[in-house]
Computed example of a mutant assay.
Amino acid sequence: MYSQSAAKAYQNTGNQAGNPREREAALLIKAAAYLQRTKLETSTPDDLDYALTFNRKIWTMFVGELLDENHEMPKPLRENLVNLGLFTFNHTLEIMTDPQSKTVDSLININRNIAEGLRANN
């Protein structure tokens, strides 16, 4: 069920949506859906690990692109998004370290809100 890598998902999403911002939004929604599924009673630790890893890979790609000084996005916005990326990395590590006391809710909300913003700016 969770066998695709983030890069493969990006390629598959690219076939479905031509606009780069729409592809990014679709990936964030997909990651949010994986994270949401980990909240089900039937979810396993492997499901959580996959969802967190998938989300981290997506954010790693985003942050890498945003750190490029030639990126078309205004620098203050890029910096805010990089900070969100750093938060997701840190929160992911906290969840992996102690999954009983941390939730994926903030990661889900971040992904959904950023996706909504990407789609609104199309």
Rank of each mutant, 00 (worst) to 15 (best):
L77C: 10
N122D: 15
A26Q: 10
K57Q: 12
T42D: 11
I114N: 07
T103W: 08
A17C: 10
S5Q: 07
N121H: 14
D105P: 05
A7Q: 04
Y10M: 01
L35R: 03
R21P: 04
L77R: 10
A9E: 08
I110R: 13
A31T: 05
D98V: 01
R78H: 13
Q36T: 08
D49M: 01
A32W: 02
T38G: 00
P74L: 12
N121Y: 07
S43W: 03
P20C: 12
L40W: 07
N19Q: 11
N12G: 09
N19A: 11
N12P: 03
V63W: 11
P76I: 08
R78W: 12
A9K: 07
N90H: 13
L35W: 04
H71Q: 10
Q100N: 07
G85Q: 08
N15E: 15
E69L: 13
A7M: 06
R37P: 05
R23Y: 09
L27E: 11
A6Q: 00
T92L: 06
E22R: 13
I29F: 09
G18K: 13
A6N: 00
T42A: 12
T92C: 08
I114S: 00
E79P: 09
L35I: 08
P74N: 14
S101M: 12
E41Y: 11
R78N: 12
N122Q: 15
L35Y: 06
G18E: 14
T97P: 05
T97V: 04
M61V: 09
R37W: 06
A120M: 08
N113K: 14
L28W: 00
V104A: 10
D105F: 10
L84T: 07
A51F: 00
A25H: 05
L28Y: 04
H91G: 12
N70W: 07
Q100S: 02
A33Y: 14
K75L: 14
T38P: 04
E116I: 00
K8W: 12
L77G: 05
E94W: 05
I58C: 03
T103Q: 12
P76R: 12
A120V: 02
T53D: 02
P74F: 13
V104I: 09
N80H: 13
T42Y: 07
M1R: 12
D46L: 14
A17D: 09
K39S: 01
Q36G: 11
I114W: 03
S106G: 08
A6P: 02
A26W: 04
D68C: 00
I95K: 02
E41F: 12
A6G: 01
K102G: 03
V82I: 14
E65Q: 10
F89R: 11
Q100D: 04
F87C: 01
A120N: 02
L67K: 15
Y50T: 07
A51P: 04
E79L: 14
L67Q: 15
K57T: 06
N111Q: 03
L66A: 02
A51Q: 05
F54Y: 14
W59Y: 06
F87L: 00
A31W: 03
F87T: 01
S101L: 10
D98M: 02
N12K: 10
S43H: 03
P20R: 10
S101C: 08
F62W: 00
E24I: 11
G85N: 07
G14L: 13
V63G: 09
L93Y: 08
G14S: 14
L40K: 12
A33Q: 15
D98K: 03
Q11K: 11
M1S: 14
E116A: 04
F54S: 01
L52V: 05
K8A: 15
M1P: 11
A25G: 02
L48Q: 06
